[in-house]
């Protein structure tokens, strides 16, 4: 296994919300103690439902927001409280692709301008001709044609726009790409085109992907490692095959069983989860999953379980044996 390029240790991001004249502010623990590592050429997938902190994780790793606790180090350089603002090289190292290709491109910029902007801002020493040459190369790399260079985003379909968004993220030659639900806004026939592009680019540039998704069939196809999150905390993580074949945490098991399988003969063996996701404002004490868990006991309501296991880690007092 090659050296990790990004390591996160007990990463936290808390927000203070509310707090008017008479009420004290509440703390939202959007991300509460995530530890993981990214390796060049490999994909770590983060899965979970809404409110589990996966998008917060993306923002912290991209250094859009500083972590409020824990450490984040990229190529051995620790990200300080100032985030990437004090270290421009770090910013170029991590780039992000957002979910909605309709919202993430500036409608008043041509595709060419969109692609050239990162260079203009971060590499002022690159000449205008060189900038344009690199942008045109990138256009071809992501599967678009030269004549698209002067067109505007509204002239493209969703899949093509997502290609542009991927191209823009790669302009600064990053080593880490954060993909925040990159295909969930796309139709099935377009989704596979974009996934193939991502696979090709990863092989070509040995990129480390942090792939955030709620679609387990996409994750199963693309990921090397999987991290399952619930209400801000990773509850299980490990190599993809281990997690999918032998889930140890009850939540992972329930999530897998709830995901529809596109095979009418597939035997439904669904674990019915009672109740809804609690609000991240009001996380239950102990293991956050305990109110919905069928294996929960008194201990689960008191404290968060320690992580067990080596490569395949999970946090549960009553893990599923198989």
């Amino acid at each position: 296994m090659s050296e990790a390029i990004l390591t996160a240790e007990a990463l936290q991001r808390h927000y203070e919300v509310g707090g008017g004249m008479f009420s004290s502010p509440a703390t939202v623990r959007a991300l509460d103690g995530a530890s993981f590592a990214l390796t060049p050429g490999k994909t770590l997938a983060v899965v979970g439902e809404s409110g589990c902190g996966k998008s917060t994780l993306a923002r912290v790793v991209t250094m859009i927001e500083p972590p409020s606790g824990g450490t984040l180090a990229i190529e051995g350089r620790e990200v300080g409280p100032g985030g990437a603002a004090s270290d421009r090289d770090l910013r170029a190292m991590v780039q992000i692709v957002f979910q909605d290709p309709y919202g993430s491109l500036n409608p008043r910029q041509t595709i060419g301008q969109t692609l050239m902007e990162p260079l203009k801002l971060n590499r002022p020493e690159v000449s205008a001709e060189e900038r344009e040459r690199r942008a045109r190369d990138m256009l071809r790399m992501v599967g678009l044609r030269d004549e698209h260079f002067d067109r505007y985003p509204h002239m493209f379909s969703g899949g093509q726009r997502q290609r542009v968004a991927v191209g823009r993220a790669l302009m600064l030659e990053p080593k880490i790409l954060v993909l925040d639900e990159p295909v969930s806004a796309l139709d099935l026939s377009i989704q596979s085109q974009v996934l193939n592009l991502l696979i090709d680019l990863q092989e070509k540039f040995q990129l480390a992907y942090l792939f955030i998704s709620h679609d387990l069939s996409v994750v199963r196809h693309l990921a090397d490692e999987v991290m399952v999150m619930y209400l801000g905390r990773p509850v299980e993580m490990g190599p993809k095959d281990d997690v999918f074949a032998h889930p140890r945490h009850p939540y992972t098991r329930a999530l897998l069983s709830a995901t529809p399988v596109a095979d009418p003969r597939h035997e439904k063996n669904r674990i019915k989860l009672e109740g809804e996701l609690p609000s991240p404002m009001n996380v239950p004490p102990g293991c956050p999953f305990n109110p919905r868990c069928w294996r929960a006991s008194e201990t689960c309501r008191e404290s968060f379980p320690p992580y067990e296991g080596a490569r395949h880690r999970f946090a549960c007092y009553h893990p599923i044996e198989d």
């Binding site: 139709d187 099935l188 085109q193 193939n196 996409v218 199963r220 196809h221 596109a262």
Partner: peptide, 23 residues
């Protein structure tokens, strides 16, 4: 047939079969 083949869970290789073009 093409739509079903494009499902990630039916994939046999790392690269998925695609449907070229758009609707």
């Amino acid at each position: 047939a093409a739509l079903l083949a494009a499902l990630p869970e039916r994939a046999t290789e790392r690269r998925l079969p695609t449907i070229p073009g758009v609707v």
